[in-house]
Amino acid sequence: MRSHKGNEKGMTLVEILAALVILGIVFIGFMTIFPQMTNFNEKTESKLTAMNEARVHLDNFKNSSYSIDYFTSENGYVEKNGSWIRTEESGIGEVEYKIEKQPALPAGDAEGELSLHGIIISIQKDSKVISETFGYIEVGK
């Protein structure tokens, strides 16, 4: 009689089942990451969109000329806490423009000189600020 104990070249059923269980646990661990990554990517995309929209609004303000007389209730502005404030609806949410009444850099005495006023543009969704940017705009007398 021969002994087959030294000639084992295959895997037993128990070893295969143990390997499948371990692979299943690893696979389930990876599968829980993907929905979290998708959720994170969606939040990042909406935040980037809001940031870009706020910058576009700021550029529109910078590329236009204004006088002190523009910031009135007729144009949708309200005076509050030393600022002119206007809100409007946007595709992303509610956009709030807040222009400081007191100039950061007052105009000189020469004719046509402009003063620089600080502006804060915030985008809110569901009463929560999702993006905010600030800059300065030129305002005439």
Rank of each mutant, 00 (worst) to 15 (best):
103 P>E: 01
56 V>N: 10
100 E>R: 11
25 I>Y: 08
69 D>L: 13
70 Y>V: 04
126 D>M: 02
127 S>G: 14
60 N>W: 10
37 M>S: 14
129 V>W: 04
141 K>Y: 00
101 K>D: 04
42 E>Y: 10
115 S>R: 08
79 E>C: 01
117 H>G: 09
31 M>P: 00
47 K>C: 07
133 T>H: 03
27 F>I: 04
101 K>Y: 07
64 S>L: 10
11 M>Q: 05
122 S>D: 08
4 H>P: 04
74 E>L: 15
6 G>Q: 08
105 L>T: 15
10 G>F: 06
137 I>A: 01
90 S>K: 02
127 S>M: 03
80 K>D: 12
94 E>Q: 14
92 I>F: 12
3 S>L: 09
14 V>F: 03
88 E>Q: 12
83 S>C: 13
61 F>K: 02
85 I>S: 05
81 N>L: 09
68 I>D: 13
25 I>L: 02
34 F>T: 04
24 G>Y: 06
8 E>G: 01
5 K>H: 11
88 E>N: 11
68 I>S: 13
72 T>D: 08
130 I>G: 13
20 L>V: 05
116 L>E: 11
117 H>R: 13
15 E>G: 02
55 R>Q: 14
89 E>L: 07
125 K>H: 05
126 D>E: 15
106 P>D: 03
74 E>C: 02
69 D>Y: 10
82 G>C: 14
54 A>M: 08
